[in-house]
Design a protein around this nucleic acid. Structure first.
Length: 482
RNA sequence: CGGGGAGUAGCGCAGCCCGGUUAGCGCGCAGCGUUCGGGACGCUGAGGUCGGAGGUUCGAAUCCUCUCUCCCCGACCA
């Protein structure tokens, strides 16, 4: 290694974490700027990560009894406008189509910012009796929200997500469903992305426009230790049932309005994965969602060596293909060292180096991306050792992320400390809050930290609000957020 | 939408203040040769509407006006 600067080099995370994020996305070929302001192109390598997330979440959604479906991209203005809080909350972010077929539309169509307004009217048609409930559908798609400050994956005008929608006979059932789906998100994000999250409830100020309650999983990013809302699930009460006329005849003979939920998780979790695990060398992908889990770098000098190595690599690939996503880097116009750096930048969890010396010893040298630990592995044992190694890396990455979360979360009992922690990017603060939106606003205005959630998992504890000193029965997370 | 920074070859930049002939450099890219276990080297070569539009001028990457995009901060955002 020289101290020469190459274009592939990244700025160090500690020097400028936001710039590191921008650089690593471009250099690892996850996404690129597009000619459309605020919209990014997701490149194949980035999309492959999202596809793995989709697979991992899709089966969990189906397991929960929800079926996939597809609803229109457009929503007529009058339909969108029916739920007052909902439209008020989304109004500034909605993109409108006013022309089509060569003429002005009689009524503008919104490009969906979310699909309650098109799905609920369909639910109204499908629900007649309590026997028709619950109605549970999910759609994978894109939505548009006119954001003014785009960041790749985290906030773009158009983004990719899934949105699930359900209708229930009782509020209790709806609430349980909202909580159940949030837990599916928690499980997916923790298990597949190796990102620990804190599940909880949003404050009134932070909840979804039109929701009774919003539940969220909050994850801590690396670098500045800001929070990222990584999935939300809403108990919509009967607000949408009432305005969209989702009525059913209950078993007691009464005609009632249905209770709804909606829940979404977007490709911003790809951004979370980048920020939680990445380091100065680039991405560090959790094996379970890494598009390439094992990259094999053959090493040879002369023709004869190439033949020998080739033969061994063929055997290795045969053994690994059934148990891992493998790629062999046969490029002969790159040195081995170059390839090492490039695949580390791209975050491939395991690299196998194999040269003539290894072939002679019937082994490969395996190198972990997360620790750079090098271990020789007998070719005969690869089919057993590699899956085990991937599991170990996945587990270790999760543990490392949990450590970061706990090391940068502090119980805080006074306002000055809270403000100082926010100013220092020290991490999350668990503090008492009386529940008054005015206190929440004061913190936000003065420190830029917002309430991220009221964690489900906490002991009852009497205390006094860090802002006004008023009575509080539990703590909330205050943190700066992306 | 407000404040700041930046757009010159695929990437990173110099040139601009003080206009002047063929617009440079490093990396990358193509060909050939030597190399190859942590970002190799030599030779030859290709590659540019200087973000875009308009203006000033004999002459504009350079000066003026407008505009687009990206990055950061703020406001706003479930």
């Amino acid at each position: 290694m020289t101290d020469k600067k190459y274009v592939e080099d990244l700025i160090d995370q500690d020097d400028d974490f936001d710039q590191w994020y921008v650089d690593v996305i471009r250099k690892a070929e996850l996404a690129d700027d597009s000619p459309v302001r605020g919209c990014k192109v997701v490149r194949p390598y980035g999309w492959a990560i999202w596809e793995n997330v989709q697979k991992a979440l899709d089966w969990r959604i189906k397991e929960a009894g929800v079926e996939n479906a597809a609803f229109p991209l457009f929503i007529p203005q009058s339909m969108l406008a029916q739920e007052a809080d909902h439209i008020e909350g989304f109004a500034p972010e909605v993109a409108w189509v006013t022309r089509g077929g060569g003429k002005d539309l009689e009524e503008p169509w919104a490009v969906r910012p979310t699909s309650e307004a098109i799905i609920c009217p369909m639910f109204a048609q499908w629900a007649q009796s309590y026997r028709d409930l619950p109605l549970m559908v999910n759609q994978w798609g894109n939505v548009v929200r006119w954001e003014d400050r785009p960041r790749a994956f985290l906030r773009t005008l158009e983004f990719y997500w899934q949105e699930g929608h359900t209708a229930h006979a009782t509020l209790e059932e709806a609430d349980a469903r909202a909580r159940q789906m949030l837990d599916a998100y928690r499980d997916m994000v923790e298990t597949e992305l190796a990102i620990p999250v804190v599940p909880g409830r949003k404050s009134e100020a932070e909840k979804f426009a039109g929701a009774l309650h919003t539940y969220t999983i909050e994850a801590m990013m690396g670098g500045k230790h800001w929070a990222l809302q990584s999935g939300t699930s809403h108990n919509l009460g009967d607000h949408f049932g009432k305005v969209y006329g989702i009525r059913f005849l209950d078993r007691d003979g009464e005609r009632k309005f249905a209770f709804n939920t909606s829940w979404g998780l977007s490709h911003r979790v790809v951004g979370a994965t980048i920020m939680v695990h990445g380091d100065d060398a680039g991405l560090k992908l959790p094996p379970r969602i890494a598009p390439i889990q094992v990259v094999i770098v053959p090493i040879w000098r002369k023709e004869g060596e190439l033949t020998t190595v080739e033969e061994a690599v063929t055997r290795i690939v045969e053994r690994l293909k059934p148990v891992a996503r493998v790629k062999v880097d046969w490029r002969d116009d790159r040195t081995a060292g170059y390839k090492f750096n490039e695949w580390e930048l791209k975050g491939v969890p395991v690299r196998l180096e194999i040269g003539p010396r290894d072939v002679a010893a019937n082994q490969v040298v395996s190198v972990r991306r997360d620790t750079r630990e090098k271990t020789p592995i007998s070719i005969d044992e690869l089919a057993d050792r590699i899956p085990a190694l991937l599991d170990t890396i996945q587990a270790d990455m999760f543990e490392a992320a949990k450590r970061m979360l706990s090391e940068h979360t502090a119980v805080v009992d006074d306002y000055d400390t809270l403000a100082q922690r926010a100013a220092d990017n020290a991490g999350w603060s668990l503090a008492h809050w009386c529940g008054d939106p005015a206190c929440e606003t004061k913190v936000k205005t003065e420190t830029k930290a917002t309430t991220r959630c009221i964690p489900f998992d906490q002991a009852e504890e009497a205390g006094s609000c860090v802002v006004c000193g008023g009575a509080s029965s539990g703590r909330v997370i205050f943190a700066r957020a992306y």
